[in-house]
């Protein structure tokens, strides 16, 4: 099973033509092919079926398959656009494209909004932000009094929720992020700029003459 080269073509569930994926994303054809090497490695780490399940995703992130993590789980769910419980190669490339240094700020802002909108209502609500703060505190074993957490939430929603309706909509988020650009730091992965250097073996399997 898994992803195997066959007559120069790769047999893999959800595999898409690198030329097509490059046309839809910031990546060059060579970069898409290099990402396939990364994808193969992650998707075969637990079950060699050519798809990344949540356990494999967490294992790749933390090198620890048992770790439960709200944030990693949320990222996985956004990568899994077809809601199949697995990430195929096309999902993987299109999602990572958002994290490319050259991808537009607008795309990054929109993705980050969805990241924090845990229940997909189209709004970032106070209880969602509190849930994430508590998860982070649990992850780091850091302790903060509930009054401190509420004070942080008050301050945040005072700044971000400009119409003061208790929730942050996309336009409020866009404005808030423009005043706090450091919030987008997590949306850019410098590794993606050098992906062909990091995974040079793609050259041996390349299906195109030029990239």
């Amino acid at each position: 099973m898994g992803c195997v080269p066959s007559k120069g073509r790769r047999q893999c569930p959800g595999y898409e033509d690198p030329v097509f994926l490059a046309s839809q994303t910031t990546f060059s054809v060579s970069e898409v092919e290099a990402l396939f090497e990364l994808f193969k490695s992650i998707s075969s780490s637990v079950i060699d079926d050519g798809l990344i399940n949540k356990e494999e995703f967490v294992l790749a992130l933390f090198k620890n398959r048992k770790k439960e993590n709200l944030f990693a789980s949320r990222i996985f769910d956004l990568f899994d656009v077809k809601h199949k419980g697995v990430i195929d190669f096309g999902d993987f490339v299109r999602a990572l494209h958002i994290f490319h240094p050259n991808t537009s700020l607008e795309d990054k802002i929109n993705f980050s909004f969805r990241l924090y909108d845990l229940d997909n209502t189209g709004f970032i609500e106070r209880q969602e932000v509190k849930q994430m703060l508590l998860a982070l505190l649990g992850e780091s074993e850091m302790k903060l009094a509930d009054e401190t957490i509420e004070a942080i939430l008050d301050k945040t929603f005072l700044e971000a929720d400009t119409n003061q309706d208790g929730k942050i909509d996309l336009s409020e988020w866009q404005y808030f992020v423009s005043k706090n650009p450091s919030l987008l730091r997590i949306m850019t992965l410098p590794y993606l700029r050098d992906i062909t250097t990091a995974f040079p073996s793609f050259v041996f399997y390349s299906e195109v003459d030029e990239a």
Partner: peptide, 25 residues
């Protein structure tokens, strides 16, 4: 504490995808 909640949340290791690119060879 001068940080907003999102500054704090973005420190989570789960939002840092760098791990995907490490130790994969």
């Amino acid at each position: 504490l001068n940080l907003n909640a999102f500054d704090i949340i973005s420190l989570s290791s789960g939002f840092d995808l760098s791990g995907l690119f490490e130790e994969t060879d």
